[in-house]
């Protein structure tokens, strides 16, 4: 199952927090919807073990990045919705900067390589 996945587990672990922060920056959401959104955007390449997302969400809540609220959904069931806080936006900006630095550096390197090939 793991061998079919596109990303290594280290990369998945490292990218979870920025991914969750970014999805929440689109508006409040709950655990299942978050997972579906990431799966859909990555074309099914980023596969999470669903249960492992919740400890990360709770950690982010402890750190003050997000806040949560139980709400009644249209089906009558209760869901825990997460919303980005100011600290979370700050953390996201920082993450964004770091990932863009890596992304741009790699991109420049790989452009130079395609030219030389």
């Amino acid at each position: 199952m793991y061998s079919n996945a596109m990303l290594t587990k280290e990369l998945v672990a490292a990218s979870t927090v920025p991914l969750v922060l970014s999805v929440l920056s689109e508006g409040e959401s709950y655990g299942y919807a978050l997972i579906q959104r990431v799966r859909e955007l990555s074309g099914g390449e980023i596969e999470w073990t669903d249960g492992m997302l919740y400890p990360v969400l709770h950690w982010m809540e402890r750190e003050g990045f997000v806040e949560s609220e139980w709400k009644e959904a249209e089906t009558g069931r209760r869901r825990k919705y997460y919303q980005l806080r100011k600290e979370g936006r700050g953390a996201l900006a920082k993450e964004r900067k770091q990932w863009l630095v890596v992304h741009n550096t790699l991109l420049k390197l790989w452009k130079a390589q395609t030219r030389s090939i």
Binding site: K9, A13, W48, T49
Partner: peptide, 12 residues
């Protein structure tokens, strides 16, 4: 030790 191992296969 690994924490935040959201990846499938990490729980081997």
């Amino acid at each position: 030790r690994q924490s935040f191992s959201v990846a499938i296969g990490a729980q081997k």
